[in-house]
Nucleic acid binder design. Structure first.
Lengths: 186, 186
DNA sequence: TATTAGATAGAACGGTTGATCTACTGTCAA
DNA sequence: TTGACAGTAGATCAACCGTTCTATCTAATA
């Protein structure tokens, strides 16, 4: 049989699952129960619930996921970016989709001192760099602005799809992304 | 002296303020204290906290605010829509900005049965109609798609500005809105 | 074998949550 | 004056919150 992951990993897995399906306000008891871990382990490994939540955000997919989607689309610079929105269309139409984990955490945790905010900022900055690098390689006239625009499209798609999935915001965003990509210097 | 609003209005005002600054998970006690209203009045008027939260969303600004911004921009069809993003730039750079109230409620209230979700859907559908009507008047080739795109830009701006206000997503979105508006039939 | 670190189980802490309850106060109309 | 009604004040409820605690067990190390 496969070796069971340690308590630390089980806590992260359970927290990743429950904070997404139930929200970050899910109780510690529920996380402990699903992780099948002693109460004390949580405070020993993460210092408390806040630390656990922050670590979940820090260790979740990150930009690697976007990178994988782009790499899976081949070499054509245009198709690589558009593939992101094709993937978003798939993600946002799944029944299990409940919005963007990072946006939800940002809006739910109203205390500016919560350690999660720094992780969210780091994540989105990383995405900006990923997009800007991609646009730079494609000769985009203003990669930083273009990356900001792609981020607005991604965040807008994920936010809007929660309330109006039947509007297929990913497809609407894809069409806007095409317009951005068609902008050529000069 | 001016007559003090009744308990119902005071409850709505306090809830509107506190659910935005503290989040929808703010305690009933805090709302009652700021409204200076008896506990019983809340349950008599709104049936409970859920009803109060839903009523706050139902009676908040709505599309009238967007309508006012567009009307204040004059008659030029292009300027009317772009004025929305100029206003978003002002709103999202204010220190008091804490994100979109509706998106926050949608993502924070994970119980699909919460009455707030219907109000949020009604609100965004109303915005879609407002934008679609505007685009129809301007001869846009696909007003419904255009309205969906504008909604993605608005939601994306409000969502992204919480984490990265220095990126000025409203300006990035404005440039994309220009591209949408320039699309002409044929 | 003795020691130590990590994990476990579970009671208990003080505080807060949303909700319900009784009792009292003021106002206005019949 | 009486009755109805809305609002107020505050006690009370069970449930839950995140956290801390003691105590026990296990496994690897020295």
């Amino acid at each position: 049989m496969t070796t069971r992951p340690g308590p630390r990993e089980r806590l992260l897995d359970a927290a990743r699952d429950l904070t997404y399906t139930q929200g970050v306000h899910v109780g510690v008891d529920a996380i402990l129960k699903q992780a099948d871990v002693a109460r004390r382990s949580l405070y020993q490994h993460f210092g408390g619930k806040d630390g656990l939540v922050a670590e979940v955000l820090r260790t979740t997919a990150r930009e690697e996921r976007y990178r994988r989607v782009m790499d899976g689309a081949g070499d054509d610079p245009r198709e690589r970016v558009l593939a992101i929105f094709d993937e978003l269309e798939r993600v946002t139409t799944r029944p299990s989709f409940h919005g963007c984990r990072y946006t939800a955490a940002e809006l739910t945790l109203t205390d500016p001192a919560h350690p999660a905010h720094a992780e969210i900022r780091t994540y989105k900055d990383g995405l900006h760099r990923l997009f800007a690098d991609e646009l730079t390689r494609n000769g985009h006239p203003d990669p930083s602005l273009g990356a900001d625009q792609l981020l607005v499209l991604v965040d807008g798609t994920l936010a809007h799809a929660v309330t109006r999935p039947d509007a297929h915001p990913a497809l609407a965003a894809r069409a806007m992304a095409e317009l951005i990509l068609d902008r050529r210097p000069g």
